[in-house]
Design a protein around this nucleic acid. Structure first.
Length: 747
DNA sequence: ACGCCGACCGTCCGA
DNA sequence: CGGTCGGCGT
């Protein structure tokens, strides 16, 4: 076999690169996954590298799974020993083995956002922090950013100065971290942070992994944060048998696709990689294999508006293809109706299947209108990232039972379910137990066990004891022979009366909850069947904690998929719709009016670039003049990103309905009153600017009073008016302002 | 202790 | 608009 045959020269160089740091700047669609997988295969087959010594890190489980499958197909056997997983899973695996060295128990819980918020609520109450003035969310956010930067509570406090707000946040950070520890729990950011901490404090643990991971590959490197960079740097800094540092680290990224600054991604990681790792070999992959020339040119034109990027130009040998289309609708409802209708028509005519399409948007809220239309049209669809399955109440309740059984120290889990279903244990009781637990340095659960010693609890104690005995009963069964996890969940549902309560309620909502519970049981069975090691409760909880919605996306199933532009990163589709191309939506209002609009608009633009480059054959952009947002009607201008695509690449569609009016004028500024960014009660800003509808579109023949007959070749918006390009039979091509030219449609 | 209702709020993106 | 929280009545 020669796997090198289907690679271009640059790709080949990357695959065959021997030792030392390698930075691959891989443009969108340039075959970076191919390079990574081939490289892994090449190392194994041609350099005699033991698969055991290779680590590949991705951002999503889906990407990890796919990479594994592709390597599997390339190398016969042994590939199962390659460690391919996400940053978070990698860290969990490491911590499960060594976290006791930094004072946690190896059975630690993983807190999701909800759990973290519940904990922070407790913390704020305890510290008397007025969450009206300092919302929990903002504190959690500050902590999260700090952890991204490897800043612990001590260092955070040092940097607070005299700022009251920051001082309070520092206090909360301390207490939050203290309580996580007491609950033997880690939040998402801790997974990375604590792994770095482990490696910094325990040389033998670090040496173990440095020795194991002699070749490291990182995908989507542009989205790593400082903590992740440090983690990779530590792992890659092992020495070989001659005592030399080789830095066999291969990272793949594209600075133009960096779209996660808001969650701490540090673009410097890619921009200064060469400085961090001396003698870095840099390889650029600039040939795009995915998109048509039209689509790629549009992408290049848009991203060219960003300054401070690594210079590169993607090119493709693919055909020119159809022009990118842009359609401005009256309302978001028209937009959804038309897009879904167009897709259905193509599928009905057997021109495409549903899974050839993707509808992309900036915010999850935009999915609503589409969903309504899809249901009405009976189109099979999947919305990625709307309500996370594991965030549903009944699922979280059951998981909290499992966590309580698995890790009795997990105070948040215990508090969540102590009165679910209702056992007559109220807030007052919980408060007393909690205070007792804190004063006596014990866990909430241990305090429950000793509730007889807690003053003022005489009446509730019986109720508490019955809860404790349920948990103890379930826990003891876990250690029986032949007891499996499916039985456990059945026993939980049974012993707690959870299922019974739902069955008795009999409402539609209750039925749906039961269906969700069944789904959870299914997932548990799947987990037990597919687990690589012996299935355990912690193993299942861990898997659940680390899945994201995109992981469940299966492109081989024939449904239409809708998702945010962020979720679409790394995917491709023949036909892509990017909807809601409006100022205030995309780019978002937050970016436009932030402290640093320049930077944030550039990030939005990169997001736009990511979106455009998802399309293989056809890209359709849409916008709406008016749109329902949070119950109000808002009016937005078309997105600046539309204007950044040169007109010769853009085909402006007129919606079917004859209601075209002008674009909003350029000086049309969103209102900032009332924190309602772009909502107006009346569209009065349009008054005096009514240019009348355009009765013609691109391709139509029109008549001008002086130039005679001509064919419309393009319509763009310039400022306050349409700019119409007409190819006249006698006078050649002219650009005209629609409101002045008085063009009429000729038959 | 608990359920209901109305006020209020926060507005994006996500592992 | 939709979720959450606090107040109030039972």
């Amino acid at each position: 076999m020669n796997i090198l045959d289907d690679l271009n020269p640059e790709q080949k160089k990357a695959v065959m690169h021997d030792k030392g740091p390698l930075l691959i700047l891989a443009g969108a669609g340039s075959g970076k996954t191919r390079v990574l997988t081939y490289r892994a295969a090449y190392l194994i087959e041609h350099r005699n590298v033991n698969p055991w010594n290779i680590l590949a890190v991705t951002f999503t489980n889906k990407a990890a799974r796919e990479m594994k499958e592709r390597i599997d197909r390339l190398v016969g056997y042994g590939s199962e020993n390659i460690w391919v997983s996400t940053f978070h899973s990698t860290c969990v695996r490491i911590l499960r083995r060594f976290i006791d060295r930094i004072g946690y128990e190896r059975s630690f819980s993983i807190y999701d956002d909800d759990d973290s918020r519940a904990l922070m609520r407790d913390v704020c109450k305890y510290l008397d922090i007025d969450t009206k003035r300092i919302p929990e969310k903002s504190i959690l956010n500050a902590i999260s950013r700090a952890k991204d930067e490897l800043i612990g509570p001590e260092e955070f406090e040092k940097n607070t100065g005299r700022d009251y707000m920051l001082k309070k946040q520092a206090e909360a950070y301390y207490e939050y971290q203290k309580r996580l520890k007491a609950s033997n729990a880690l939040d998402f950011d801790d997974l990375i942070f604590k792994t770095v901490e482990l490696f910094m404090t325990d040389e033998s643990a670090l040496a173990y992994y440095q020795n194991r991971f002699q070749y490291i590959m990182v995908d989507e490197y542009q989205d790593t944060n400082t903590a992740q960079f440090r983690l990779i740097q530590l792992l890659a800094s092992g020495v070989n048998e001659y005592g030399e540092r080789e830095y066999n680290l291969c990272v793949v990224g594209d600075d133009d696709q960096s779209i996660y600054k808001f969650r701490g991604a540090n673009i410097q990681n890619i921009l200064s990689f060469e400085r961090a790792f001396p003698n870095t070999k840099v390889i650029k992959l600039e040939q795009n294999y995915r998109s048509t020339k039209s689509i790629l040119s549009a992408a290049n034109e848009v991203i060219a508006n960003n300054i401070g990027r690594k210079p590169k130009t993607l090119w493709t040998a693919n055909e020119q293809g159809e022009p990118v289309t842009y359609t401005l609708f009256d309302t978001d409802m028209d937009e959804a109706e038309s897009v879904t209708g167009e897709i259905k028509r193509m599928v009905d005519n057997n021109q495409a299947r549903y899974n050839d399409f993707a509808i992309l948007y900036r915010t999850n809220a935009q999915s609503r209108m589409f969903e309504e239309k899809l249901i009405r049209k009976n189109i099979p669809y999947k919305i990625i990232g709307s309500v996370n399955f594991y965030a549903r109440k009944e699922i979280k309740d059951l998981l909290a039972y499992m966590k309580t059984i698995d890790n009795g120290l997990d105070n948040i889990a215990v508090k969540r379910i102590i009165n679910v279903p209702r056992r007559g244990i109220g807030a007052a009781t919980i408060e007393k137990v909690d205070a007792y637990a804190i004063n006596n340095g014990m866990s909430f659960y241990d305090a429950l066990v000793r509730c007889e010693q807690i003053p003022g609890l005489e009446r509730s104690c019986a109720k508490i004891m019955s809860f404790v005995s349920i948990i103890e009963g379930l826990r003891s069964r876990l250690y029986q022979e032949n007891y499996n996890l499916t039985e456990l969940i059945d026993d939980i549902l049974d012993a707690t009366g959870y299922l019974k309560e739902l069955e008795e309620e009999g409402s539609d909502e209750a039925r749906e909850r039961i269906a969700n519970i069944d789904e959870l049981v299914n997932k548990l069975v799947t987990y037990a069947d597919e687990a690589e090691e012996a299935p355990t409760l912690s193993g299942f909880l861990e898997e659940v904690a680390l899945v994201s919605d995109i992981d469940s996306f299966d492109e081989s199933e024939d449904y239409l998929v809708l998702m945010t532009l962020h979720s679409a990163k790394g995917l491709e589709f023949p036909y892509v719709y990017i909807c809601g191309m409006e100022e205030g939506i995309f780019p978002s209002y937050m970016a436009m009016y932030s402290d640093n609009p320049q930077d944030e608009i550039e990030e939005e633009r990169r997001l736009c670039y990511v979106g455009i480059t998802r399309a293989r054959k056809r890209l359709s952009l849409t916008a709406a003049r008016q749109r329902m947002m949070r119950g109000d009607i808002s009016f937005n201008k078309p997105s600046r990103f539309i204007k950044e695509i040169p007109e010769h690449l853009l085909k402006i569609n007129m919606p079917d309905r004859k209601t075209m009016t002008s674009f909003a004028p350029d000086d049309y500024q969103p209102s900032r009153m009332n924190y309602k960014p772009f909502a107006f009660s009346e569209p009065k800003q349009f008054a005096g600017n009514n240019l009348g509808e355009l009765e013609y579109g691109v391709g139509d023949t029109v008549r001008h009073f002086r130039f005679g007959l001509g064919k419309v070749t393009a319509i763009t918006m310039g400022g306050r008016d349409y700019e119409v390009t007409v190819d006249f039979e006698e006078y050649g091509t002219k650009k005209l302002m629609a409101s002045f030219a008085k063009l009429t449609k000729a038959e």
